[in-house]
């Protein structure tokens, strides 16, 4: 029952000696339905017999998986840290320069406002004289920097789940990347007690507290999480503690096993729900 009109097998048209093309075919190919591939490969003359086919398949699948693993693991925590710092720098400088653009453009255009939308719009303008052309060129540089920040954000969004699947499922890509950056790496984050994770990003407040006088901070950068922000101020400390606990566990699973554990999502949701229910009782 060899119907050759449907999707071909991975081996179609390949030379068993050419491992690279076999690897590409395995990684990039697809088919809606499986067929008796070993038999077809022999019948098509792609390979001598079934046993040799399996040897070929073994070599090609191992090589394909090795390469795919290497590619996905290049999405390392250190790359993310660079990306998140580059994002922060881009945004900080964009804000600063946006003010400068608005101030300068204001001498020329009475509708000038301090926001990136205005800068983007100004950058598109056709300058009317030499002076305006300086302002427009300057605005276009700032606009490009703003675009760069958007691209970095998309990069972080896409890569964090590969680096830390559970942490980014619980925290969202950006917060996960920020926690990793604040700790210095996924491994460092995994080794921190959850009380430290709770106040990562609030070091100033923490040391003011430790020196005496100030109250202890309830949360650091995890304030960005809806579980903390969306909880009434009275219970926010509990929510932050619960969230930090679950995020620590997620970071440890990501660092030591790398396997996705969807039950962590539900455990967090359940904890937060219970904390918020205190408001009603």
């Amino acid at each position: 029952m060899t119907t050759h009109d449907a999707d071909p097998g991975w081996f179609a048209g390949l030379d068993p000696e050419d491992l690279d093309s076999g690897v590409d075919a395995i990684r990039d190919g697809s088919a809606t339905e499986p067929r008796e591939w070993p038999q077809e490969a022999v019948e098509d003359g792609a390979i001598g017999d079934k046993s040799t086919y399996y040897d070929w398949l073994h070599e090609a699948t191992v090589a394909a998986s090795e390469r795919a693993v290497a590619e996905r693991e290049r999405a390392s925590d250190q790359q993310l840290i660079h990306a998140i710092r580059a994002l922060d720098d881009c945004e900080r400088v964009t804000n600063e320069l946006t003010e400068r653009v608005a101030e300068w453009a204001g001498t020329h255009d009475c509708d000038a406002t301090v926001d990136t939308e205005y800068v983007q719009e100004l950058a598109e303008r056709e300058p009317e004289d030499a002076l305006e052309s300086h302002i427009v060129t300057f605005a276009s540089r700032v606009a490009a920097l703003d675009d760069q920040a958007t691209e970095l954000r998309a990069f972080i969004e896409r890569w964090t789940p590969d680096v830390a699947p559970n942490l980014s499922a619980l925290a969202g890509s950006e917060l996960a990347a920020r926690l990793i950056a604040l700790a210095g790496g996924l491994g460092d984050l995994a080794k921190k007690p959850s009380g430290t994770v709770q106040v990562l990003g609030a070091e100033d407040a923490l040391f003011a507290h430790l020196r005496g006088g100030a109250t202890s901070p309830k949360h650091g950068v995890i304030y960005l999480h809806e579980a903390v922000r969306g909880t009434s101020p009275e219970h926010r400390g509990s929510a932050a503690r619960a969230l930090a606990g679950k995020l620590s566990i997620a970071a440890r699973v990501d660092h030591y096993s790398g396997e996705r554990k969807p039950e962590l999502d539900d455990e967090l949701a359940e904890r937060i729900e219970r904390i918020r229910a205190r408001d009603e009782s």
């Binding site: 399996y54 073994h58 998986s65 795919a68 693993v69 790398g258 396997e259």
Partner: peptide
């Protein structure tokens, strides 16, 4: 689907010629 366990799986596959790992 996860890259890290796949690395261990690849070691297992090295000794077993009829085991085909797919990421």
């Amino acid at each position: 689907f996860a890259p890290r366990p796949m690395r261990d799986l690849l070691t297992v596959a090295t000794d077993r010629s009829r085991l085909f790992p797919l990421l």
